[in-house]
């Protein structure tokens, strides 16, 4: 199925603004950064997480532990028809028990990825709490999950696709809403 660009939702500047705001919101809501850890969900949650971590560090002048989560082992569609996901390593080098975990992903859609991520984190330890930050919330939840921090809420239809590009993976920063070609 071919898609074409419908509208650009963010460019490098607006994306950065959103991340700065989210960083500030995280600090404000948690009254500082005590016990705060940041975990990015593979693939595009990871660069976003490290950017937010860096921004918080700049603001608060402390170092924030950052981890990488691969949720493939926790997916609920393993044997469904379709290309099989490659499992990659989860890399969380700190203990998460009693930590305030900020989970970061690029797009919140059905909520199934976040469900898998929550299960995965809980298997790793018992955090004090988990909060969720996403760059885009496009609606259409299939599970009772919501984000604590949102870069931009975007109303979409089900047959549209939100394409997030980050410089670390894609060579540029942008968010584009794609629609099906007729």
């Amino acid at each position: 199925m071919a898609y074409r660009e419908k509208v650009q939702l963010m460019d490098a500047v607006t994306m950065d603004r959103s991340l700065i705001r989210i960083a500030h919101e995280i600090i404000e809501r948690n009254k500082g950064v005590q016990d705060l850890v940041i975990i990015g969900i593979r693939t595009r949650g990871v660069p976003l997480a490290s950017r937010i971590a860096r921004k918080i560090e700049e603001i608060e002048k402390v170092s924030i532990p950052m981890g990488i989560l691969d949720i493939t082992m926790y997916r609920d569609d393993l044997t469904a028809v379709g290309p099989q996901p490659i499992v990659r390593q989860t890399n969380i080098s700190f203990r998460i028990t009693d930590k305030k975990v900020i989970l970061i992903d690029d797009v919140l859609f059905t909520g199934r990825t976040i469900r898998a991520a929550l299960d995965s984190i809980i298997d790793l330890g018992r955090p004090k709490f988990i909060q969720l930050a996403v760059l885009i919330d496009r609606g259409h939840r299939e599970l009772p999950i919501r984000a604590d921090y949102v870069g931009k809420n975007v109303p979409t239809s089900l047959d549209e696709v939100v394409e997030v590009n980050v410089a670390e993976e894609d060579g540029k920063d942008s968010v584009i809403l794609m629609e099906k070609e007729e």
Partner: peptide, 17 residues
């Protein structure tokens, strides 16, 4: 490589299968 990490966790179990 990814699965080796699982064996180092406290909870050495994932729901994959």
């Amino acid at each position: 490589k990814a699965f080796k990490e699982v064996s180092t966790r406290d909870v050495k179990k994932v729901p994959t299968l």
